[in-house]
């Protein structure tokens, strides 16, 4: 039994959890990160091509393809039966963000890596163009669906943040994808990637604070344990990285690289913080019971 903030005694079954903690390993949080980079890079690459910024376009293409190759490896590794990974493409279910996401990743990852390979070898130009268009179109949903994936659960801190999570993951994707491209792009063509990174970082910080405030007592987990620790790391790194990129990123190659590294660390820490918050939220039955009791009180009122 635990005592709530309002001073009423909440009843529970020996304090045991009601919803189960996720069984996902940190690979899943790492995939949220790599998937975000891949999605943003697809867009940077596409617009870079159209605006004839070849330096930026090529860098984004290769960075994105690397992230797209890492993503399914991380996901397959997390499966309880990795040899059955192809079962993900057995059906298409709009009620399952993981099913929709598997198809998005399959198309987007396939298109990006195909385009990157054909770019390297300089062959089959029409196929490359088709792959580039497919990658461009599937990039943004690849970056945001992971927010819907965690929000579509019974975990209070994830479910209650369903308004913010796709936006937060999208913003974090812009920060990390922009940063990864800035890091490797020639200085004279990295401008759009750098500005996308700064814009994403500012949005990421704003959305994090907004989410934590709006969640109320359910958001307590963001101030405790690992979710709290990595949340603080995320905020510090993101703020420092964005400041450094905005102040010195244009002139100094070193500042651009350092600022980008900070933003990447910040985005990775944010995903891990959100990931861990779900575990912490599931562990305490208070969040499930109190939120639902609150809802029932509103219904009867």
């Amino acid at each position: 039994m635990s005592i709530t903030e309002r001073g009423t005694e909440m009843q529970s079954y020996y304090g045991r959890p009601i919803v189960k903690e996720p069984v996902w390993h940190p690979e899943v949080a790492a995939y949220f990160f790599t998937g975000g980079i891949a999605g943003t890079c697809s867009v940077l690459h596409g617009i870079g091509r159209v605006t004839r910024n070849e330096g930026l376009a090529k860098t984004a293409l290769y960075v994105g393809a690397a992230a797209d190759i890492a993503s399914p490896i991380l996901l397959v590794k997390d499966l309880g039966r990795p040899e059955r990974f192809l079962n993900m493409l057995r059906v298409f279910k709009v009620t399952s963000p993981m099913s929709v996401g598997s198809w998005i990743l399959f198309v987007s990852g396939g298109a990006s890596t195909t385009a990157a390979l054909l770019e390297l070898t300089g062959r089959l130009r029409p196929v490359k163009w088709a792959a580039e268009v497919a990658s461009f179109l599937t990039g943004p949903p690849l970056a945001t669906y992971t927010g819907a994936l965690v929000a579509n659960t019974a975990i209070p801190v994830w479910s209650e943040a369903r308004g913010e999570l796709p936006w937060l993951f999208g913003a974090s994707a812009a920060a990390s994808g922009g940063a990864a491209t800035t890091m490797f792009a020639p200085r004279r063509s990295a401008g759009p990637a750098r500005r996308a990174a700064i814009l994403g970082a500012v949005a990421e910080l704003g959305l994090t604070v907004a989410m934590e405030r709006r969640l109320g007592f359910v958001g307590e987990v963001y101030y405790e344990g690992e979710a709290g620790k990595y949340g603080r790391v995320a905020k510090a790194c993101t703020a420092a990285g964005a400041t450094l990129l905005a102040a010195r990123g244009r002139r100094s190659r070193v500042a651009a690289a350092a600022g980008s590294a900070l933003l990447l660390a910040g985005s990775a820490a944010l995903r891990y913080s959100v990931f861990k918050a779900g575990f912490q939220s599931a562990r305490d039955p208070r969040y499930v019971v109190e939120k639902q009791r609150e809802r029932l009180r509103e219904k009867t009122r």
């Binding site: 910024n53 943004p140 936006w167 812009a174 990295a190 500005r195």
Partner: peptide
Amino acid sequence: LNTAVAAAALLTGIAVSFFGGRE
């Protein structure tokens, strides 16, 4: 719907970043 709008916003945000030159 929210996820789709967020994806569109991400696309728009990146497109906006292309204003202001290459460097």
